[in-house]
Design a protein around this nucleic acid. Structure first.
Lengths: 195, 195
DNA sequence: CAACTGACAGATTTCAATTTCTGTCAGTTG
DNA sequence: CAACTGACAGAAATTGAAATCTGTCAGTTG
């Protein structure tokens, strides 16, 4: 019972799927390609994932979870709430910008995948706003922020910064003035948040 | 020289183009269709618009300008700046929401057109942020707002409210909680803006 | 002579025939 | 007997030939 390279696990299939998506793009990546990459018949892939859509959704979730985990560290930190909020949004923007700019094709691929999987994206956003809510609540508890409903405020913050993390704006993330725009929006929001 | 129904003006061509777009959608609307609707040969349409792209751009500009004009009235009003700002954004959101919800196909058509005409959209956004800048400046002048750079602040306000006017979010404008989300974002921004 | 027509070349789109893919399952393998 | 294969039916994608469209321009019309 060798651990990784021998047995066919869901994890190995997801890795192969990611590789096939990277190579072929979202429109041409087939289950047959994934099976071929793994050296098995495509029927075998269907033992682990009921449909092609389920396989794509699982890949999408994995990708979204990686972003969540990176930010969870910042959200759980012990810095002052305002500083933490700023670091969190900066981290989110930087991560997105790096992914979109560094490998545009892969980013476009995942944009298609997230477009297909509204439910997974919804969960991811719930996850991120929950992190934000914790920071906002820390601020109201310490008296640094004023927010009657921390969860609603967290959602408002997330929506108001959409330009800097929503993939539909990815094309504008490489423009020159974008950093200043980001700072201007964040400053305005933080001013509104302070007690 | 009859005024409207006889002579072929650019205006009449634009009206016919709008009608053809409404009927056929952006993918199937052809210059030949427009010419047929006007009872002329398609060569004649090319006397008034050099290319099909130019014709589409002109239609797009007309549509965008209608929104600008409606809001210009609010921006130029004499109400208190905060109230005016709130009315302006509410007017923008309501107008978009009504268009998107009332005739989704036509809205989708114009979304395609705006996607094609980045330059025209850019001018439209410049126009809108100029209106916003005037309101913000009125606020800083009267002492109601604090904003070191009114133009930059206006842009920040526009970006932060993208969820409520950018067509890429049109699908979410009919969801139940959207009004509350809008109010939450606007409240937060106005709090940050107050002196 | 200004406004318009209609035929034309090259680019784009359509449509139907063909190929490939998805998802299933009876049968094979170790 | 659990994991896998591969043939199969229906769905979806691809391909290339035919139709349509874009943009031009010499010629027509009032």
């Amino acid at each position: 019972m060798a651990p990784t390279a021998e047995t066919l696990t869901a994890e190995r299939i997801l890795e192969a799927t990611e590789e096939v998506l990277r190579r072929h793009g979202p429109a041409k990546a087939t289950v047959v390609d994934v099976a071929r990459a793994l050296g098995v018949s495509h029927g075998t892939v269907y033992r682990h994932f009921r449909t092609k859509a389920a396989l794509r959704e699982a890949v999408t979730k994995r990708w979204l979870d990686r972003t969540s985990e990176a930010l969870a560290g910042i959200a759980a930190g012990d810095r002052a709430p305002e500083e933490r909020l700023r670091a969190w949004f900066t981290g989110l923007f930087e991560a997105k910008r790096r992914k979109a700019g560094g490998d545009p094709e892969l980013f476009a691929t995942y944009s298609v995948l997230t477009g297909e999987n509204g439910a997974a994206v919804g969960e991811h956003i719930d996850d991120l706003t929950a992190q934000l809510t914790r920071i906002v609540r820390a601020g109201t508890d310490s008296g640094a922020f004023t927010a009657a409903d921390p969860a609603a405020t967290a959602r408002a913050l997330f929506h108001a910064t959409g330009r800097f993390h929503d993939p539909c704006y990815a094309g504008e993330w490489q423009q020159p003035g974008i950093e200043d725009e980001f700072t201007a929006v964040l400053d305005l929001l933080l001013r509104g948040l302070r007690a």
